[in-house]
Nucleic acid binder design. Structure first.
Length: 292
DNA sequence: GTCCAGGTGGTCA
DNA sequence: TGACCACATGGA
């Protein structure tokens, strides 16, 4: 039995922040599948949450060591090593034009999720809506993942590994509601199967990683940056979507955020906090244009 | 019925 | 490069 506290987090805001589609809200808490384990997270204070392991643990013998390992996996997922309050403070001070965005954003952590799951997730996300993305991903788990040990049968599944994903046909993906992205997913998975060093992409520089990701079908610049961020923990990225495009114009007078501008934003303006600033900028525009 | 969804691929200049 | 348009679907 593992129970631990995650500080500086607002679960509702994190759930709604467009980075995670696997959490299942139930009875005022969230059920969170991470690899082959299931956790239950509940907000117990305005900025802290209690996380409990609900799936099967280990044999008693190595339970002590096992629990430490599980705990570190959980901390990794929630990115607890970073001091988010300090980061939000710093960004607010450095970029006062984003004050409202920072205010809203406090409590959101940028999760470190499985890279392959993020790759599939963000291909699906293009020009799509959240509820359908969630539905498609849930069906992928149910049909091609494995039941998480120690949970009620048929309730929670792992995200399939690459080999399992390679068994999903274009037609399957269509049945899961992937729409016109179905062939992209199928083709990309096939290509990944043939890339020998795919499992060490986390050793690549961010530029090189994004280049590799961009070669895959269904992955353009925005999606590549999202995968690099949420799947590989890179913060020297800046996903530019329709909202961020509007925000860049509104707050910085940038009309056409081409590659050159993107490099400037990451390397000179927002630097190592680019990813978090992007998230904040999204909320800045949302709160700013509310009711327009 | 119409419009939109935190874009991308294909085509053409 | 950059500008266009088509693209499956579920939900509002």
């Amino acid at each position: 039995m593992l129970e631990t506290i995650i500080e500086d987090i607002n679960l509702d805001k994190t759930y709604d922040s467009g980075q995670v589609f696997s959490w299942v809200p139930k009875n005022g808490a969230y059920f969170i599948p991470i690899k082959n384990r299931l956790y239950r997270a509940e907000q117990i204070e305005p900025s802290s949450a209690k996380c409990t392991l609900v799936s099967k643990t280990f044999s008693k013998k190595d339970e002590k060591e096992g629990l430490d390992k599980i705990k570190s996996e959980l901390f990794f997922y929630f990115d607890v090593q970073k001091n988010y309050p300090n980061l939000y403070d710093y960004i607010e001070k450095k970029h006062p034009e984003l004050k409202n965005g920072v205010e809203y954003g406090r409590g959101i952590r940028l999760l470190r999720q499985d890279s392959l799951e993020m790759l599939i997730t963000f291909i699906l996300s293009a020009n799509n809506n959240i509820s359908r993305i969630r539905g498609s991903l849930a069906k992928i788990r149910q049909n091609f993942g494995t039941s998480i040990p120690g949970t009620e049968k048929g309730s929670f599944y792992t995200f399939p590994d690459l080999k399992a994903l390679s068994n999903i046909s274009v037609e399957d993906f269509q049945n899961f509601g992937a729409g016109y992205r179905a062939p992209y997913l199928n083709e990309t998975i096939g290509v990944l199967m043939g890339i020998k060093d795919y499992n060490v992409w986390d050793l690549l520089s961010t530029d090189e990683l994004i280049k590799q990701l961009s070669n895959l079908k269904g992955i353009g610049p925005k999606v590549a940056h999202c995968i690099a961020l949420f799947g590989y923990g890179r913060w020297d990225v800046f996903p530019i979507d329709t909202w961020i495009k509007k925000a860049l114009f509104k707050y910085y007078g940038i009309e056409k955020p081409n590659k050159k501008v993107l490099d400037y934003l990451i390397n000179e303006k927002f630097k190592e906090n680019s990813a978090l600033v992007q998230q904040i900028m999204f909320y800045q525009l949302k709160t700013d244009t509310k009711g327009e």
